[in-house]
Design a protein around this nucleic acid. Structure first.
Length: 208
DNA sequence: AAGATAGACAACCGCCTGTGT
DNA sequence: AACACAGGCGGTTGTCTATCT
Protein backbone atom coordinates (compact mmCIF):
# COMPACT_ATOMS: atom_id res chain seq x y z
CA UNK A 1 0.00 0.00 0.00
CA UNK A 2 1.92 3.05 1.21
CA UNK A 3 5.05 2.21 -0.69
CA UNK A 4 5.77 5.69 -1.92
CA UNK A 5 9.26 6.60 -0.77
CA UNK A 6 8.07 10.11 -0.01
CA UNK A 7 5.46 8.84 2.38
CA UNK A 8 5.97 9.07 6.13
CA UNK A 9 5.52 5.98 8.23
CA UNK A 10 5.45 5.27 11.91
CA UNK A 11 4.13 7.42 14.70
CA UNK A 12 2.16 10.53 13.84
CA UNK A 13 3.45 13.90 14.92
CA UNK A 14 1.33 16.57 16.58
CA UNK A 15 1.57 18.67 13.44
CA UNK A 16 0.31 15.83 11.25
CA UNK A 17 -2.57 15.24 13.64
CA UNK A 18 -3.49 18.90 13.57
CA UNK A 19 -3.43 18.99 9.80
CA UNK A 20 -5.61 15.91 9.55
CA UNK A 21 -8.10 17.11 12.15
CA UNK A 22 -8.44 20.49 10.57
CA UNK A 23 -8.85 19.02 7.11
CA UNK A 24 -11.52 16.51 8.13
CA UNK A 25 -13.38 19.14 10.13
CA UNK A 26 -13.43 21.32 7.06
CA UNK A 27 -14.17 18.75 4.38
CA UNK A 28 -15.57 15.78 6.22
CA UNK A 29 -14.54 12.15 6.04
CA UNK A 30 -14.03 10.35 2.76
CA UNK A 31 -11.83 10.59 -0.33
CA UNK A 32 -8.98 9.27 1.75
CA UNK A 33 -6.84 8.65 -1.31
CA UNK A 34 -6.70 12.27 -2.26
CA UNK A 35 -6.84 13.62 1.28
CA UNK A 36 -3.10 13.54 2.05
CA UNK A 37 -2.23 15.70 -0.93
CA UNK A 38 -5.05 18.13 -0.26
CA UNK A 39 -4.23 18.32 3.43
CA UNK A 40 -0.50 18.62 2.84
CA UNK A 41 0.32 15.35 4.54
CA UNK A 42 3.10 13.00 3.51
CA UNK A 43 1.00 9.96 4.39
CA UNK A 44 -1.02 7.51 2.38
CA UNK A 45 -4.80 7.71 2.45
CA UNK A 46 -5.21 4.52 4.38
CA UNK A 47 -2.89 5.72 7.07
CA UNK A 48 -4.88 8.96 7.38
CA UNK A 49 -8.15 7.09 7.59
CA UNK A 50 -6.82 4.78 10.26
CA UNK A 51 -5.38 7.61 12.30
CA UNK A 52 -8.63 9.53 12.15
CA UNK A 53 -10.89 6.59 12.93
CA UNK A 54 -8.78 5.07 15.65
CA UNK A 55 -7.35 8.08 17.37
CA UNK A 56 -8.51 11.51 16.28
CA UNK A 57 -12.27 11.21 15.93
CA UNK A 58 -13.88 13.55 18.46
CA UNK A 59 -16.46 11.02 19.61
CA UNK A 60 -13.90 8.50 20.78
CA UNK A 61 -14.12 7.35 24.36
CA UNK A 62 -10.60 7.07 25.66
CA UNK A 63 -9.64 5.28 28.81
CA UNK A 64 -10.12 1.91 30.40
CA UNK A 65 -12.86 -0.46 29.42
CA UNK A 66 -15.59 -0.86 31.99
CA UNK A 67 -16.77 -4.17 33.37
CA UNK A 68 -19.95 -3.78 31.31
CA UNK A 69 -17.96 -3.20 28.15
CA UNK A 70 -15.88 -6.27 28.94
CA UNK A 71 -19.02 -8.33 29.19
CA UNK A 72 -20.48 -6.97 25.98
CA UNK A 73 -17.29 -7.75 24.12
CA UNK A 74 -17.16 -11.28 25.44
CA UNK A 75 -20.81 -11.89 24.63
CA UNK A 76 -20.58 -10.46 21.17
CA UNK A 77 -17.41 -12.36 20.49
CA UNK A 78 -19.26 -15.52 21.42
CA UNK A 79 -21.83 -14.70 18.79
CA UNK A 80 -19.75 -13.07 16.10
CA UNK A 81 -16.19 -14.26 16.52
CA UNK A 82 -13.42 -11.89 15.43
CA UNK A 83 -15.80 -9.47 13.76
CA UNK A 84 -14.28 -6.50 15.50
CA UNK A 85 -16.04 -3.89 13.46
CA UNK A 86 -19.42 -5.40 14.29
CA UNK A 87 -18.51 -5.56 17.94
CA UNK A 88 -17.27 -1.98 17.84
CA UNK A 89 -20.54 -0.88 16.29
CA UNK A 90 -22.26 -1.93 19.53
CA UNK A 91 -19.84 -0.02 21.72
CA UNK A 92 -20.15 3.71 21.12
CA UNK A 93 -16.84 5.51 21.28
CA UNK A 94 -14.78 2.39 20.85
CA UNK A 95 -12.99 1.37 17.66
CA UNK A 96 -12.49 -2.03 16.16
CA UNK A 97 -8.75 -1.69 16.53
CA UNK A 98 -9.07 -0.75 20.18
CA UNK A 99 -11.37 -3.67 20.90
CA UNK A 100 -9.15 -6.05 19.01
CA UNK A 101 -6.11 -4.92 20.99
CA UNK A 102 -8.03 -5.10 24.23
CA UNK A 103 -9.22 -8.57 23.41
CA UNK A 104 -5.75 -9.80 22.58
CA UNK A 105 -4.06 -8.25 25.60
CA UNK A 106 -6.68 -8.48 28.35
CA UNK A 107 -9.76 -10.55 27.69
CA UNK A 108 -8.01 -13.45 26.03
CA UNK A 109 -5.80 -13.87 29.07
CA UNK A 110 -8.72 -13.42 31.41
CA UNK A 111 -10.70 -16.16 29.71
CA UNK A 112 -7.72 -18.48 29.61
CA UNK A 113 -7.26 -17.83 33.31
CA UNK A 114 -10.85 -18.90 33.84
CA UNK A 115 -10.24 -22.03 31.84
CA UNK A 116 -12.26 -20.81 28.87
CA UNK A 117 -11.02 -21.15 25.34
CA UNK A 118 -11.07 -17.60 23.94
CA UNK A 119 -11.79 -18.77 20.42
CA UNK A 120 -14.80 -20.96 20.98
CA UNK A 121 -15.73 -19.85 24.52
CA UNK A 122 -15.91 -23.40 25.69
CA UNK A 123 -14.18 -24.69 28.77
CA UNK A 124 -10.67 -25.92 28.17
CA UNK A 125 -10.62 -29.50 29.29
CA UNK A 126 -8.94 -32.75 28.49
CA UNK A 127 -12.32 -34.30 27.94
CA UNK A 128 -14.18 -33.60 24.73
CA UNK A 129 -15.96 -30.25 25.25
CA UNK A 130 -19.37 -31.64 24.48
CA UNK A 131 -19.06 -34.23 27.17
CA UNK A 132 -17.25 -31.98 29.59
CA UNK A 133 -19.40 -28.90 29.53
CA UNK A 134 -22.51 -29.13 27.49
CA UNK A 135 -23.65 -32.47 28.76
CA UNK A 136 -22.67 -31.88 32.34
CA UNK A 137 -25.61 -32.50 34.64
CA UNK A 138 -27.56 -29.41 35.69
CA UNK A 139 -27.73 -30.58 39.26
CA UNK A 140 -24.07 -29.65 39.69
CA UNK A 141 -25.20 -26.22 40.71
CA UNK A 142 -28.91 -25.85 41.20
CA UNK A 143 -28.62 -22.05 41.47
CA UNK A 144 -27.88 -21.73 37.80
CA UNK A 145 -28.59 -23.30 34.49
CA UNK A 146 -24.89 -23.63 33.71
CA UNK A 147 -22.68 -26.61 34.29
CA UNK A 148 -20.11 -26.12 37.00
CA UNK A 149 -17.35 -26.25 34.43
CA UNK A 150 -18.59 -22.97 32.97
CA UNK A 151 -18.57 -21.21 36.27
CA UNK A 152 -16.05 -18.89 37.79
CA UNK A 153 -15.74 -18.49 41.53
CA UNK A 154 -19.12 -20.07 41.92
CA UNK A 155 -20.67 -17.48 39.63
CA UNK A 156 -21.78 -18.77 36.27
CA UNK A 157 -20.13 -16.98 33.39
CA UNK A 158 -23.29 -15.88 31.67
CA UNK A 159 -25.18 -15.18 34.84
CA UNK A 160 -22.35 -12.99 35.98
CA UNK A 161 -22.70 -11.05 32.80
CA UNK A 162 -26.38 -10.54 32.86
CA UNK A 163 -27.17 -8.87 36.13
CA UNK A 164 -30.79 -8.41 35.18
CA UNK A 165 -32.48 -10.56 32.64
CA UNK A 166 -32.14 -9.30 29.12
CA UNK A 167 -33.12 -11.24 26.12
CA UNK A 168 -31.82 -11.29 22.64
CA UNK A 169 -33.70 -13.23 20.06
CA UNK A 170 -31.69 -14.03 17.04
CA UNK A 171 -33.91 -14.32 14.06
CA UNK A 172 -32.99 -15.48 10.64
CA UNK A 173 -34.15 -16.10 7.15
CA UNK A 174 -33.23 -19.25 5.37
CA UNK A 175 -30.44 -19.91 7.81
CA UNK A 176 -30.75 -18.97 11.42
CA UNK A 177 -27.85 -18.04 13.59
CA UNK A 178 -27.45 -20.05 16.68
CA UNK A 179 -25.04 -19.83 19.53
CA UNK A 180 -23.11 -22.25 21.63
CA UNK A 181 -25.32 -21.47 24.58
CA UNK A 182 -28.38 -22.79 22.80
CA UNK A 183 -26.81 -26.19 22.91
CA UNK A 184 -26.63 -25.95 26.66
CA UNK A 185 -30.35 -26.33 26.69
CA UNK A 186 -31.12 -22.80 27.79
CA UNK A 187 -34.01 -22.40 25.46
CA UNK A 188 -35.58 -23.80 22.35
CA UNK A 189 -36.13 -20.36 20.85
CA UNK A 190 -32.46 -19.49 20.62
CA UNK A 191 -32.36 -16.83 23.25
CA UNK A 192 -29.32 -15.49 24.92
CA UNK A 193 -28.99 -13.70 28.18
CA UNK A 194 -26.87 -10.66 27.64
CA UNK A 195 -26.00 -7.35 29.14
CA UNK A 196 -28.89 -5.00 29.77
CA UNK A 197 -29.38 -1.61 28.10
CA UNK A 198 -27.71 -2.62 24.92
CA UNK A 199 -29.66 -3.57 21.86
CA UNK A 200 -28.03 -6.65 20.53
CA UNK A 201 -30.72 -7.76 18.21
CA UNK A 202 -29.27 -9.34 15.15
CA UNK A 203 -31.07 -10.59 12.17
CA UNK A 204 -30.37 -12.10 8.82
CA UNK A 205 -32.85 -11.80 6.02
CA UNK A 206 -32.83 -13.56 2.72
CA UNK A 207 -32.03 -11.37 -0.28
CA UNK A 208 -35.14 -9.78 -1.75
C1' DA B 1 21.81 0.30 38.12
C1' DA B 2 21.44 -2.22 33.95
C1' DG B 3 19.81 -5.54 30.96
C1' DA B 4 16.04 -8.76 29.89
C1' DT B 5 11.36 -9.69 29.42
C1' DA B 6 6.45 -8.88 29.13
C1' DG B 7 2.57 -5.98 28.36
C1' DA B 8 0.05 -2.47 25.89
C1' DC B 9 -1.29 -0.19 21.99
C1' DA B 10 -0.54 2.44 17.64
C1' DA B 11 0.28 1.56 13.04
C1' DC B 12 1.06 -1.26 8.90
C1' DC B 13 0.00 -4.89 5.51
C1' DG B 14 -2.53 -7.53 2.47
C1' DC B 15 -6.79 -9.13 1.21
C1' DC B 16 -11.77 -8.62 0.43
C1' DT B 17 -15.96 -6.21 -0.88
C1' DG B 18 -18.81 -2.74 -2.86
C1' DT B 19 -19.44 0.58 -6.42
C1' DG B 20 -18.91 2.97 -10.64
C1' DT B 21 -17.80 2.69 -15.50
C1' DA C 1 -19.71 -9.13 -17.53
C1' DA C 2 -15.31 -7.42 -16.61
C1' DC C 3 -12.37 -4.27 -14.78
C1' DA C 4 -10.50 -0.58 -11.72
C1' DC C 5 -10.61 1.87 -7.68
C1' DA C 6 -11.65 3.27 -2.90
C1' DG C 7 -12.80 1.94 1.44
C1' DG C 8 -13.01 -1.37 5.08
C1' DC C 9 -11.48 -5.28 7.77
C1' DG C 10 -8.71 -8.61 10.46
C1' DG C 11 -4.15 -10.21 11.36
C1' DT C 12 0.32 -8.95 12.45
C1' DT C 13 4.27 -6.15 13.61
C1' DG C 14 6.89 -2.39 15.75
C1' DT C 15 7.81 0.45 19.47
C1' DC C 16 7.40 2.34 23.89
C1' DT C 17 6.84 1.57 28.86
C1' DA C 18 6.70 -1.03 33.05
C1' DT C 19 8.27 -4.74 35.68
C1' DC C 20 11.39 -8.28 36.88
C1' DT C 21 15.95 -10.40 37.68
Amino acid sequence: MCDDEHTNKGAWTKEEDDRLISYVKQHGEGCWRSLPKSAGLLRCGKSCRLRWINYLRPDLKRGNFTREEDDVIINLHTLLGNKWSLIAARLPGRTDNEIKNYWNTHIKRKLIGRGIDPQNHKPVTTKPPAAAAINAPREENPKTSFPASMQNDGVPMMAAMVGGAFRVVITGGAEELSSSSSSSGLSEEKELLLVPQINLELSISPPV
